[in-house]
Design a protein around this nucleic acid. Structure first.
Lengths: 155, 155
DNA sequence: AGCAATCTTGACTAAAAAGTACGGATTAGC
DNA sequence: GCTAATCCGTACTTTTTAGTCAAGATTGCT
């Protein structure tokens, strides 16, 4: 029961994009998050396939939110990045004896997992990307990378 | 954010032991859970090192609870089996830019993880092994493996 | 058209988790 | 003291996840 790397970096990337309405490129994201460009690309692909960000190719390209931050529910993002907490059909597929399960369908351990899942969902399904964007004024001082003759300044 | 195999099988094994006051051996557990004896042994070792079960060697040996079920808090078991949800020092160790974090210590994504953790802990720290043992009368009909001249019957 | 910046994709390598194998140590019963 | 049933520990193999690489496709600019 650990956050996967996909979830950790995926959420971080999404928040960064939310803060940068003009869009962020893979090299920019790579530098901001301290991961390789290839890895940043891989994470951003998951977010794109999930429909949370959209990409523009070519010069002036980059990633932006696919919809307003208040319409992006974190629970959906997490599902896309890391899948569900447990497989709901474990009891069917596992080859052990089922006698310990009460009343032929359910068992105490399964109930526990479901309780945990419900508890997590209550947080994640209530939270939108907008909710994670506090101190937006401060954040807006982060500007886009400006290429210049004497080096680069990021954000 | 998935339950690990250790967590799934560890909890299942613990519940089975709780239901069998006389103790369960590795072969018994292996058969009951449908996993190899070697794997059952590995899982039981984690539970033993965590102080939740104790083992008796030799003939008539096996695993029993190390303390009463009502004194075993599931949150502690889960920690022993699968570790914490996230590393609390991620922000220190990761090499990306920290500017997105508010006020130099915290950041929105971290807050989210903490909220999830709190939510999970509320379930797991309130639940004891005893709470998972419903229908105990029914369960007590499961008896120990009885070796006999004409084969074995398990539970 | 040509170039440079950008995203896209699939295949590859590395690390971690899951699961197995085996030789050793302990105990009960005879 | 011998034997059989049991746990113990380490090292190994397999599978999954994490992370890299390289060739291709798209776009804006001149």
């Amino acid at each position: 029961m650990k956050l996967s790397a996909n979830e950790e970096y995926g959420m971080r990337c999404l928040v960064r994009i939310a803060y940068n309405a003009q869009g962020l490129t893979i090299p920019e994201m790579s530098q901001a998050e301290g991961v390789s460009p290839a890895y940043a690309a891989k994470i951003l692909r998951v977010l794109r396939k999930g429909g949370f960000v959209k990409a523009a190719r070519g010069k002036e390209g980059g990633y932006t939110l696919a919809r307003p931050a208040e319409n992006i529910v974190i629970g959906e993002v997490m599902d896309a990045l890391g899948g569900k907490l447990f497989e709901s059909d474990f009891c069917d597929s596992h080859s052990g004896q089922h006698a310990i399960c009460t009343r032929s369908v359910d068992c105490s351990v399964r109930s526990l997992w479901r309780a945990v899942q419900v508890s997590v969902d209550q947080v994640l399904s209530k939270t939108t990307l907008r909710d994670l964007m506090q101190n937006e004024e401060e954040m807006n001082s982060f500007v886009r990378m400006i290429p210049g003759p004497n080096g680069l300044r990021v954000m």
